[in-house]
């Protein structure tokens, strides 16, 4: 499972960084760390997950049980890429009802065909 075994070759590997001052070493440490997280944070910026979508609906005033069902049904229909909150809010605007009424209607099986694509 793990990576290949290797002896402690620190003495040779350190040659490149041995001359750096402590400050330079710290700056280099952080530049490497930032380089490592850049693609990870970019993925987060452009992607979502069922948990994120449920957390959005929680913030819009739905219970955990309601959020769970709504996100599950949206996922089944391949709608999560729009954002669960957006779907509910836009439906509410369309039907001129409250956000909670829109979510409750969806839970009752209504308006699914009206969700914007």
């Amino acid at each position: 499972m793990g990576c290949a075994e290797r002896p402690d070759d620190f003495a040779t590997r350190r040659a490149r960084i041995a001359a750096m001052s402590d400050d330079e070493l710290h700056r280099y440490f952080w530049s490497l760390a930032e380089k490592l997280v850049a693609p990870l944070i970019e993925e987060a910026r452009t992607h979502t997950t069922p948990s994120i979508e449920r957390s959005v609906l929680l913030r819009m005033g739905f219970s955990s049980i309601e959020a769970h069902t709504l996100v599950e049904r949206m996922d089944e229909r391949g709608l999560l890429a729009y954002g669960s909150g957006r779907l509910v809010l836009e439906l509410a605007k369309d039907k001129q009802i409250s956000v909670r009424a829109a979510g409750t209607a969806l839970l009752a099986g209504q308006y699914w065909e009206d969700l914007r694509r």
């Binding site: 993925e43 452009t46 994120i52 959005v56 909150g85």
Partner: peptide
């Protein structure tokens, strides 16, 4: 379970 957001993705919170 990670889903790519569309360009018009929204989360009004």
């Amino acid at each position: 379970t990670v889903i790519k957001r569309r360009s018009d993705y929204g989360a009004p919170v």
